[in-house]
Each structure stands twice: as structure tokens, then as C-alpha cells.
Simulated scan of single mutants.
Amino acid sequence: YLVGRNWGSLLSAIAFAVCAFIVYQHSQNPEPVKVGLGSVFNIIEVAIAHIILFRFYEKTRFAAYDTLAEKNQLIKRLAETDKLTGLFNREKLDRTLSSLLKSSNFGFILLDIDYFKEINDTYGHLEGDKALVIVASKLKSLSSSKAVCARWGGEEFVIIIEGTTLDETKEIATSIVKDINGIYFHEKRLSVSCGVTINHSDDNTLTVIERADSALYRAKKNGRNRVEFNE
């Protein structure tokens, strides 16, 4: 069974078949070797013990493999998840963005919480963390097979939506701005600003981010709580 369940079973069956053949050959001998009933029982006991032992070993081995696979999956999730918000982290986002640039069209939203420094200065960093978690929980509802949400850093987040046009991406960003502005935090409305763009055939990671960041800067400059875009 060291060679696996299927091969182990096959080799064991062959071994028992060979033993049975040898016993049969002896029985056909003109002067057969006398085998006592006790010896027969001993052979049967050894065979049963062999099967039980290696079945137990096989079951234990596969259980260990399953446990190891689960731990590896957990380590992978932790390595690509932002601890505070539960969204993907920047490393995971960078890999996703690089991969999509090679194969897909997508919309890109760079989102920033308005007046976040004021929240930290007024209520403390723990309350600032709560604001981050609130915004992240709204973004999680967008997560799907075609949408990746991540914490970019500080109070900034990124949403990548695969297979969308610029107009569709703007609509999604506008909906996010509206939803978050309906949330009260310390008796004030939370608000976010968004910079939107889509990828081009000659883009790299830096050019996509620069266009979205430029649009986000305009959104901040033009009053916050709004969406601006660069094609």
C-alpha cells in the first residue's frame, strides 16, 4: 500500500494468488507436503492482519493528505487576505490585475473614504478601523466570479469587474457611492469618492492605476462623494 490504494490492492491480490497457486501445486504432488489445520489458520490470520494493517495505514495516510491540503488552503487564504477587512490584499490584487491584463477586458474602480483622517483624529484609530470594515462589508456584496474587491492600502479600495464597459463600471461606482452615503457613522454620513477607468490593449498595471488615481483626484477636488472617470 506504499504505492497507493489501487496498486497496493492489486499487488496484495497477486501475492495471495501466488501463495494459493503454490499450495495447489503442492497438493498435486505425488508426495504432497502435509499441512496441518493450524498452519492453514495461521496463514489466514496473517492475511487478515495484512489487510487490516495496510487498510488502516492507507486510511490514515489519506486523512493526513486531506488535513495538509486544508492547511495549505488556509495559509493561501491568509496570505492573500487583508486581516482587518477580510477583503483581498494588495499582493493578491496585483497578481489578479497582471493576469487580467493578458486576457480580459475589465473595469477598474479606485475608491477612497472621504475625510478619513478627520475620523481618525476625532474618534481615534479604532473607530477609523470600524469605518474601514463598514465600507469593506458593502464592497463584499460585489464579490463574484467576475468582480474582485481588495483593500489597496490605508483608506483606499479597488474593485475590478471583468467584462464590463466604461458606462457599466461608472454605474457600479455610482451605486457604491450612493449606498455608502446612506450609512451614518457617529451621526454623520459616510462618503466615498471613486476614480473609474477601463483597461486598454497597450496597458500595464501602472497605467491603469494612474488613470484611476487621476480620476479619483478630480473626484476629491470637485467636492468628494462622487465619481469621476478617465477612458
Rank of each mutant, 00 (worst) to 15 (best):
L2P: 00
V3H: 03
V3A: 02
N6L: 14
A13W: 05
A15H: 11
A17W: 14
A20I: 10
S27A: 15
E31A: 12
G38I: 11
N42S: 14
I43E: 07
I44G: 01
E45G: 09
V46K: 09
A49V: 03
I51F: 15
A63H: 09
A63S: 14
L68Q: 12
L68E: 08
A69G: 01
K71C: 00
N72Q: 09
Q73E: 15
R77Y: 02
L78D: 00
L78I: 00
K83V: 03
L84S: 06
L84C: 05
N89A: 10
R90C: 09
K92Q: 11
K92N: 11
L93R: 08
L93S: 06
L93G: 03
L97D: 04
L97V: 11
L100D: 12
K102E: 15
N105P: 01
F106K: 01
F106G: 04
G107W: 06
I113T: 05
D114P: 13
F116P: 00
E118V: 08
N120M: 08
H125C: 00
V135A: 09
A136S: 12
A136R: 07
L139W: 05
V148G: 00
V148C: 12
C149D: 02
A150S: 15
W152D: 06
W152A: 11
G154R: 02
E155W: 02
E155F: 02
E156F: 05
E156G: 07
F157H: 03
I159E: 00
I161C: 04
G163S: 09
G163Q: 04
G163I: 01
T164L: 13
L166G: 04
L166I: 13
E168Q: 14
I172Y: 01
I172E: 01
T174H: 04
V177L: 07
D179E: 15
N181M: 10
F185M: 03
K188C: 09
L190D: 04
S193F: 06
G195E: 03
V196D: 08
T205I: 14
T207M: 03
V208N: 06
R211D: 10
R211T: 07
A212C: 10
K221F: 12
G223W: 12
R226I: 07
F229D: 06
F229A: 09
